[in-house]
């Protein structure tokens, strides 16, 4: 058991780590080794795909347990399970609809998705024989199946036409994905604006020399980014001797180009050394805490 849990992962890590290092430094004279540099990351993607199943099962198990025990906040778990199952069901149905749908019949009414990706428009198949581009001829009709007066026949790819049930499933899936999920995502992201304001307020309280410097430089950078900054520069220009040098936009540019990027470079160099060192420790088995044991 120890062999499978500790020794085998260490051997695999060591061998793959060494191969990747050799592949990284290999030139064009060693094409099969060089190609591993792009091949192995694809293996990682495959493994990661399998872990999606692990995540889905874990999510369902934990939340179903909460519901069955009526634990605190089990209502949230219920919402999660309903959302999870309905999205998975609709996604599977709409994603693999050609497997369930019949071939298109001439004269029958089908539905195509509108530009908003939610609502569907009825069409009638005039000719189900594909042209050179693989499209079929259709005409737009109303809900009763009458041809719309102001429209002409059109050529559409046959896989965009769906039956009534499939178009409902597709619309539902799109409503949940675009109407609920995407909007919820945007809402979370927009919260950032409020949090930036509250965090800045706390960070800019001058309690020490460093906080004072931070406040001062942040004030200049903010001023340099808004149009009132140039007005301030014009006013400052009236100060004798040093006035012409007090251009807020120039000072802001200097802060961003030199002190800020120098600090960022220093952090990056340190981090990169940390990356290399940590990778070496893992490859050689010095660091093994991630395997569940002493480092």
């Amino acid at each position: 058991m120890i062999f499978l849990k500790r020794t085998l992962p260490l051997i695999i890590t060591f061998i793959t780590g060494m191969i990747m290092i050799v592949a990284f430094f290999s030139g064009e004279g060693l094409p099969s080794i060089k190609s591993l540099e792009s091949t192995l990351p694809k293996w990682i993607q495959i493994i990661m795909t399998f872990t999606m199943v692990l995540g889905a099962f874990s999510l369902l198990r934990i939340n179903l347990q909460k519901i069955s025990r009526k634990a605190d906040g089990w209502g949230y778990s219920l919402v999660l399970i309903i959302g999870f199952l309905s999205m998975a069901f609709l996604g599977l149905i709409t994603g693999s609809w050609p497997m369930f749908d019949k071939p298109l019949t001439k004269g029958e009414i089908y539905y195509v998705l509108c530009e908003d990706n939610v609502s569907a428009r009825p069409i009638r198949v005039i000719d189900n024989v594909k042209d050179k581009e693989g499209k079929i001829k259709v005409e737009y009709v109303d809900d009763k199946g009458e041809k719309l007066a102001d429209t002409e026949s059109a050529m559409i790819p046959p896989d965009t036409a769906r039956t009534r049930i499939m178009s409902y499933a597709n619309s539902m899936q799109q409503i949940l994905f675009v109407g609920v999920f995407k909007n919820a995502q945007s809402t979370m992201f927009s919260l950032l604006a409020f949090f930036v304001a509250s965090a800045s307020f706390r960070a800019f309280r001058i309690k020490s020399k460093e906080a004072g410097l931070l406040m001062g430089s942040a004030f200049i950078v903010m001023l340099g980014n808004v149009s009132i900054g140039s007005l301030v520069s014009q006013i400052l220009a009236y100060i004798p001797v040093i006035g012409p040098y007090l251009n807020i936009a120039d000072i802001k540019e200097w802060i961003m180009t030199y002190p800020s990027s120098a600090a960022q470079s220093a952090i990056l160099i340190g981090a990169m050394l940390g990356y290399i060192s940590a990778s070496m420790k893992i490859i050689f088995g010095v660091e093994r805490s991630h395997l569940g044991g002493e480092g």
């Binding site: 981090a271 050394l273 940390g274």
Partner: peptide, 29 residues
């Protein structure tokens, strides 16, 4: 830095294991 009480900057994150375990091999690295 603005929102937390303590922040490990860059490499300090990777140094944490050595700092906490005091393992000679990690401290050496």
């Amino acid at each position: 830095v603005a929102a937390c009480d303590y922040t490990l900057i860059g490499e300090e994150l990777f140094a944490a294991s050595a700092y906490l375990s005091k393992n000679p091999r990690e401290v050496g690295s």
